[in-house]
Design a protein around this nucleic acid. Sequence first.
DNA 1: CTTATGCGTCTACAATGTATACACAGCAGT
DNA 2: ACTGCTGTGTATACATTGTAGACGCATAAG
Lengths: 111, 111
Amino acid sequence: MSPKSFLGEFEQMVLLAILQQADEAFALEVRREIERSAERTVSRGAFYTTLDRLERKGFVRWTDAVSQDTRRSGPLRRFAVTRAGLVALRESRKAFDTLSRGLDRLLGETP
Amino acid sequence: MSPKSFLGEFEQMVLLAILQQADEAFALEVRREIERSAERTVSRGAFYTTLDRLERKGFVRWTDAVSQDTRRSGPLRRFAVTRAGLVALRESRKAFDTLSRGLDRLLGETP
DNA sequence: CTTATGCGTCTACAATGTATACACAGCAGT
DNA sequence: ACTGCTGTGTATACATTGTAGACGCATAAG
C-alpha cells in the first residue's frame, strides 16, 4: 500500500506555481514564480522534464498557444493543472498537515 | 543555485513524525505515526534507509538505548531531529507556504 | 518448538531531481 | 549584416530519493 500517487517535492511546486498563474501559465512566469518563492534557480531541463512527467501522470496538460503568436515556429505551451492533479496535490498536503499538527511553534508557520 | 539542502517528501515526513514523538521517538512509533497520517505503509527498508541518509546530512541523530534494556543484543535507536534538521524542515515548508498563498480554496486546507 | 512480532542491516531497483548541450527565433545595438 | 541577449522547447545523462524484500537475531506466547 504505497502512496496512491506520489508527488515529488518539485512536482508539487510546479503544480502550485501553475495554479498561481491561473489562466496565463506560460513557462517563464511559472519558472520565475518558483524561483522567487523557493529562492532557487530552476533550469529548463529540470522544469520541462518535470512537466513531461506530470503530463504522463495526467496531472498537467497544455495547449499550443502558437496560433496567437504567428512569429514563433515551434509550439508555445500554456500550462494548466488538471482535476486529477489538484486531487493529488490535496492528498499530498493532507498528510503533511496531519503530521504537522501541534508543531506550529517549532516550525515557524507563515500565517 | 540549487536548493541549499533538498529534503525529499518522505524525509520530511520522517522528520515530522519524530518531532511528534518528542523525546520518545522509537522506530515503531515513528513508523506508525507516518502510516496513520499518510494512510500508507512504511517498510523497514524505506524507513531505515531514509534515516541513514538523514543522519549523513546531519538532520537526525540517535542514541543507543540498549543500556536500559539489557535483554537486547544489538542497538536500539532512539531518534531525534537535530537543529540543522529543524532548519531544513522550516525552509522547505516556507517555499510551500509562499507558493500556496491565495490557493486555500482550491487546496482544501486543514485549519 | 513453532508462530508472531520487533529491532536493525544490506542490496537492488524504480522514481524524482537537476544540469547541460543542441537548435531555432526575435529584438536590440553597432 | 553580425553579435549578443533573451526566450521557447528537446534530448540525454547522471545524482538523489523512494521503496521493497530478504537476512539475521531476540523475546513472548501457545
